[in-house]
């Protein structure tokens, strides 16, 4: 697998570390059903066979977080964009 890093160009996947599903949104801790929402956010996954959006960190490169679109059936990567620049954690950027 090669990931097209927007800063470094196409680089081998072993330069990157994966965090996982990029479609999850951190719930509002003040919401009345926050407990249920946090359970779903932390533990439940769609786990699709097909298109998957995920966070990758270019650890041995530019050290930027990327949002990568990849097919879990073929490993084909169809794109990578930078996570929002002002986010402190990539999961907060979604």
């Amino acid at each position: 697998m090669r990931i097209p890093c927007p800063y470094c160009g196409e680089r081998d996947a072993h330069e990157f570390a994966i965090l996982g599903d990029a479609t999850l949104t951190r719930p509002d801790p003040a919401a009345p059903d926050a407990e249920t929402r946090f359970h779903d956010y932390v533990y439940l996954r769609d786990n699709p066979a097909g298109a998957h959006e995920e966070w990758w960190y270019h650890a041995n490169g530019c050290r930027q977080w990327l949002r990568v679109k990849r097919d879990t059936r073929t490993h084909a990567i169809s794109g990578a964009v930078a996570a929002r620049a002002d986010a402190t954690s990539p999961r907060d950027a979604a």
Binding site: M1, A13, H52, T72, R73, T74
Partner: peptide, 13 residues
């Protein structure tokens, strides 16, 4: 390998 997959094959690293 560390990434989500249904491909039944992995990568070189």
């Amino acid at each position: 390998d560390g990434y989500n997959s249904y491909a039944q094959r992995g990568n070189l690293p």
